[in-house]
Design a protein around this nucleic acid. Structure first.
Length: 578
RNA sequence: CGGGGCGUAGCGCAGCUUGGUAGCGCACCUGCUUUGGGAGCAGGGGGUCGCCGGUUCGAAUCCGGCCGCCCCGACCA
């Protein structure tokens, strides 16, 4: 294509509402435009890259034996009532009525639809296994969409669903998808980690997230450099810290006035004790009681681990774990928020592993503006149970090998779940086994955020001037920048090179716009096409074309009559690498 | 949903405190000159000042309501 006729509206300035680099550059480069919050249009360049990402994903899904389908975006409420998610999914589900008053939603995911489809036509073990996938627009009415394409409300996603006869077979389907996802991330040139993850409200027993490492990522993950274990901080298992106590001699407890000191920082600076010597007491609500959770001052509570722990160790009913309200905290502690403590409190007390190792620490006194110092568990209060209750972070001990975790931020571009029979049970997706008995199918589901990948690629591949596309997903492979479009010799040579490249199958776009040289170069860096050829009257005078890769500062001259072949082979070589 | 900010030309912004009928840069159009890193000169087009109501002789400006967008948090995965 010729840029002079293309819709590539570049901008000199960052959009006012953009925070992260991918959002800024994709808007400035003429790739996307916002229509409403979290809803974007894809312009010609943006859509070409989206299609290329799709192509890579499609190839790897097909290679792994999955079959492509296309399911409806609009789904009837009945299906969601069957799975129980019409109520469970909450306000993130965009619901509406048709003209007859029938209730529908715009699909945020497709477990219900696929399960319904499969149960209608799969009746025998002979028809399994089956893996179906689609590439589709989804809608999740996020409370706070942000960062452009990274957390949009409307987005394109590839979702796959596997159906197997038993758990073992389902696991091998899961592994095949896991491998496919690794291949996809590698082909897209990502620096990524596959991490163990929580299954959230999708449900299931086993789950990995594919996290692209980036400072702007919304997720925090830890990985162990020793054994390679990697997990979301919500999931990562923390090893027991050395010793039962830190060994310090117990000091007599005393009670001190701490006016207005509610937060750990305030207490820490008021008492001049580090956060590591303060224990915070959080009050959580279970279905029918309240529980005090003890954590070291500098640690973060992990509601997922806490909920699981309370279910397993304290045998409590926990449908959803919530923080107690201010009023409830007052009821339990007889003190305003900020002064809760474990001494003389009449509810179960659970402590994080790190608290067990502490001595002579600070706690709230369950009395306004008061704390106890030099408190020791076992002596001053008793803990009901101890467990791993916090978010993992850098420096924590790996439970697998004892190594020390590193932490990273990541963009979740893919997520695989082993669902088991969660949906097949509730929706009665059964098959007949070799004995003629009904069995629920064992399912897995596997998502990849296609449009989120576009943003993730930019986050990992850019410099101050613009995007630096990896070859496989660049909207075009080569940009032919023509500096003197009014010079007939130059235009003639440019046309010849352009046509020559197209004949060789190279995806080339020619900047034949009648604009200043500065804007051509600035746009070329901004748009980020991997290889730039520059042709001007000076070069044409001595039969040379300038060649420059976007990811390098070097540039070199190539004779005009050799450039087509050379470019074709170098572009092919770069495609090969992926 | 709570807190904060913003809404003026396609984009980025000033004007609002102290009411008098809208301006700057970029972009766009015309002409001439330019051409190796967002060209110069001259001329030109484009705005219900988010919407509704109120105060006033007069509202972008003051008051009230609503809507939208952004940030922080809660929520959600």
């Amino acid at each position: 294509m010729r840029l002079s006729t293309m819709f590539v509206p570049t901008r000199k300035e960052d959009p006012a509402d953009a925070e992260v680099v991918s959002h800024k550059l994709l808007v400035r480069g003429g790739y996307i435009r916002m229509l409403a919050r979290g809803i974007y249009s894809f312009l010609p360049l943006g859509w070409r890259s989206v299609r290329k990402i799709e192509a890579v994903v499609r190839e790897e899904m097909n290679r792994a034996g999955a079959q492509e389908v296309h399911l409806p975006a609009v789904q009837p409420s009945e299906l969601w009532e069957e799975s129980g998610r019409w109520t469970d999914y909450g306000p993130e589900l965009l619901r509406f009525e048709d003209r007859k008053g029938g209730e529908f939603c715009f699909g945020p995911t497709h477990e219900e639809v696929i399960t319904d489809l499969v149960r209608g036509d799969i009746k025998s073990y002979k028809q399994l296994p089956l893996n179906l996938y689609q590439i589709q627009t989804k809608f999740r009415d996020e409370i706070r969409p942000r960062f452009g394409l990274m957390r949009g409300r409307e987005f394109v996603m590839k979702d796959a669903y596997s159906f197997d006869t038993d758990l073992e077979a389902a696991e091998s389907s899961y592994d095949a998808m896991f491998d496919a996802y690794e291949r996809i991330c590698n082909r897209l040139g990502f620096d990524f980690r596959a991490v163990e993850a929580d299954t959230g409200n999708i449900g299931g027993s086993r789950s990995h997230e594919f996290q692209v490492l980036a400072e702007t990522g919304e997720d925090e993950i830890v990985s162990c450099p020793e054994c390679g274990y990697a997990a979301n901080v919500e999931r990562a298992e923390i090893g027991v810290e050395a010793g039962e106590r830190d060994g310090a001699e117990m000091v007599e407890m005393s009670t001190v006035d701490t006016p207005e000191a509610r937060t750990i920082e305030e207490i820490s600076s008021f008492l001049d004790r580090p956060a590591e010597q303060i224990v915070k007491t959080l009050i959580y609500k279970t279905d029918d009681t309240k529980v005090a959770v003890l954590l070291r001052g500098d640690h973060q509570a992990n509601p997922i681990k806490i909920a699981d722990f309370l279910r397993e160790k304290l045998d409590l009913e926990v449908t959803s774990l919530e923080m107690a309200t201010d009023a409830e905290i007052k009821e339990v502690t007889n003190a305003p928020v900020g002064f809760a403590g474990p001494i003389e409190i009449d509810i179960p007390i659970v402590a994080d592993l790190s608290v067990e190792a502490m001595s002579n620490f600070v706690v709230g006194a369950n009395k306004a503006d008061t704390h106890h110092v030099d408190v020791n568990h076992g002596r001053d209060f008793d803990v009901t149970a101890v467990g791993d209750l916090r978010l993992a972070g850098a420096g924590d001990t790996c439970a697998q090998c004892g190594g020390i975790f590193e932490s990273h931020r990541g963009i979740e571009v893919g997520h695989v779940f082993l669902l088991g029979d969660k949906y097949s049970q509730s929706m009665e997706a059964n098959y007949l086994d070799t004995n003629g008995k009904h069995q629920p199918m064992q399912m897995g589901c596997y998502g990849i955020g296609i449009t989120r990948i576009l943003a993730a690629v930019v986050e990992q591949n850019h410099d101050d001037d613009g995007i630096i596309w990896p070859m496989p997903i660049a909207p075009y492979q080569v940009l032919l920048t023509v500096l003197h479009t009014d010079n007939d010799d130059v235009m003639q040579a440019a046309d010849a090179i352009y046509e020559g490249l197209k004949e060789q199958g190279v995806e080339v776009v020619m900047d034949d716009r009648d604009t200043g040289i500065g804007s051509k170069f600035k746009d070329s860096d901004l748009i980020g096409i991997p290889l730039r050829l520059t042709l001007g009257s000076r070069g044409i005078g001595n039969g040379q074309v300038e060649m420059k890769w976007r990811d390098s500062d070097e540039q070199f001259d190539v004779p005009v009559d050799e450039v087509v072949d050379r470019v074709a082979s170098e572009v092919a070589a770069r495609m090969e690498k992926h």
